[in-house]
Simulated assay, not measured.
Amino acid sequence: MFLLPSWVLFTVAAAGAQTLRNAMQRDLIHTIGTAGATYVRFLFGLPFAVAFLLLACVATGRPPNPLNLAALAWTGVGGVAQILATGLMLAAMRERSFVVTTAYTKTEPVQVALFGLIALGDRVTGAGALAILVATAGVILMSWPARSAKPLAAGEAAGWRPAMLGLGAAACFALSSVGFRAGILAMGGPTFFVAASTILAAGLCIQSTLIVAHLALFDRRLLKSVLAAWRPSLFAGFLGAFASQFWFMAFAIETAARVRTLALIEVVFAQIVSRRIFKQGASAREFVGMGMIIAGVALLLSA
Rank of each mutant, 00 (worst) to 15 (best):
L300G: 07
W74C: 05
F48V: 03
F173P: 08
G78H: 03
V297R: 02
F278I: 07
I83P: 01
A49M: 02
G183K: 08
Q18K: 08
T107V: 13
P232L: 10
L217Q: 06
G189S: 12
A137E: 04
G61C: 11
S244T: 09
I199Y: 01
G45A: 01
W144R: 05
M292E: 00
V112S: 06
T136G: 05
D219Q: 06
F269D: 00
G289E: 08
F242H: 02
K150M: 12
L227P: 07
V288Y: 07
Y39H: 09
F10Y: 15
R21F: 06
A146F: 02
V80L: 15
G240L: 01
A154I: 09
V267W: 00
A13R: 06
P145D: 06
T209C: 09
I294G: 00
A81M: 08
A51V: 14
L262W: 04
Y39G: 00
G78I: 03
I132W: 01
L200G: 01
V178S: 10
T261H: 05
I199T: 11
A303V: 11
G36A: 09
I184R: 00
L133Y: 03
E108I: 02
L90P: 02
F287C: 07
F52V: 06
V259M: 12
I294T: 10
T105K: 03
L200I: 02
I29L: 03
I140S: 05
T191A: 07
R260T: 15
V194W: 07
A256D: 09
L133H: 02
G33Y: 13
A157V: 10
L165K: 11
T60P: 07
S302W: 13
V259G: 03
M164G: 13
A174C: 12
F173W: 12
G79A: 12
L227I: 15
K224N: 13
A303H: 11
M290C: 14
A174W: 10
T19C: 14
R94K: 15
V259D: 05
S274G: 14
A282I: 13
T125D: 10
